[in-house]
């Protein structure tokens, strides 16, 4: 059914489309430039020039590797929630909060009504899409995750916060579609943390996507899916992009008991490991995926964003994916 939707949108993708979850590592040059910019030693224009150069590098790299559905690599983002908080009204960027060990991030604070004022990701999407004829995904963070990852001083409760965000994030989706994006990914990594709030996440995503002409993907990670499966299938998206490989494909057992009824972007390489998987390992994983999801409905990608790997590791992991997919396609043909 989703194949039909893709065709209606003018997208003719091969069997087992290959894609990426979103982020790629920033080249050293850009990493250093960001530090210099943060210290006031580099202009915003110069930083943006380097962000464009890095985006171009990743588009070329994905094309050369033979990836089917591309991403811009998020070279211009720090954090997936803070980026949107910085570009919408109603947020203040708070002080540092520890996430683990010696790692800290700036957690945004919602201090007034949240408002989308102008397109946030559209110019980056346009730029990336102008460099290639292959489809580039529009990439957003979903309302439930933005709500869960911000402090809230304005709205009365989590529900009100989440729904207000949904109404504003919808405007970004509309702007992406107007610019020409046909595949839009709405990341909801916080989805499985409070299973009792799944109906809220669903209601919010409904607000974001309702009636809009695009193929919607939602990426979720950090495990605990056993708690929200199969209820998560009620979310109004066409494709779930799930981290499968760092949990030994345990989720497939759940899909054997209750069929997975959407398209699945199946994570076949672990993004937290330096080790580059063998092609044989990845082929075997894809075959296991095919046991529970029909080939027509299966997409292949890494578990999560590759930004924590080195540039070389990220490319090597993508290369293994493309190679494994081409072997499986040949066998299916």
């Amino acid at each position: 059914m989703s194949r039909e939707k893709l065709r209606r949108l003018g997208l003719d993708l091969p069997l087992l489309p290959t894609t990426s979850v979103g982020s790629f590592p920033k080249p050293d040059e850009l990493q250093q430039a960001r530090t210099r910019w943060a210290r006031g030693l580099l202009s915003r224009d110069e930083l943006e020039r380097l962000e464009r150069r890095a985006t171009e590098f990743w588009i070329r790299t994905q094309e050369e590797l033979g990836i089917d559905v591309l991403v811009d690599g998020e070279q211009y983002r720090g954090d997936m929630v803070t980026y949107f908080a910085e570009n919408m009204r109603g947020f203040e960027i708070g002080g540092l909060v520890r996430s683990y060990g010696n790692r800290y991030y700036r957690k945004p604070i919602i201090v007034s009504e949240v408002r989308w004022e102008r397109p946030i990701t559209v110019s980056w999407w346009r730029f990336a899409q102008s460099l290639t004829t292959r489809p580039v995904k529009g990439m957003l963070t979903g309302p439930y995750t933005v709500m869960d990852w911000c402090f809230n001083e304005y709205y009365p409760d989590r529900r009100a916060t989440c729904l207000a965000l949904a109404r504003e994030i919808r405007k970004e989706v509309e702007a992406l579609i107007e610019a020409g994006a046909r595949i839009i990914q709405i990341d909801e990594p916080a989805l499985s943390v409070r299973p009792q709030e799944l109906p809220l996440a669903r209601e919010a995503l409904q607000i974001v996507t309702d009636g809009l002409p695009a193929y919607f993907i939602s990426h979720a990670c950090y495990g605990a899916f056993e708690k929200i499966y199969p209820h998560m299938l009620a979310l109004p998206v066409d494709n779930f992009d799930l981290e499968m490989s760092n949990s030994n494909l345990d989720l497939l057992e759940h899909f054997k008991r209750v069929p997975f009824t959407k398209d699945l972007s199946f994570g076949v390489v672990d993004v937290h490991s330096h080790v580059i998987e063998d092609v044989e390992t990845v082929v075997a994983r894809i075959r296991q995926g095919l046991e529970v999801v029909p080939a027509e409905a299966l997409w292949i990608d890494p578990d999560c964003g590759l930004k924590t790997r080195t540039v070389e590791e990220a490319i090597a992991k993508l290369r293994v994916i493309v190679e494994a997919v081409s072997r499986v396609r040949a066998a299916l043909a």
């Binding site: 708070g94 002080g95 540092l96 909060v97 520890r98 402090f151």
Partner: peptide
């Protein structure tokens, strides 16, 4: 209080 920024 570690889940808050220091000033907060």
């Amino acid at each position: 209080l570690e889940l808050l920024p220091r000033d907060r």
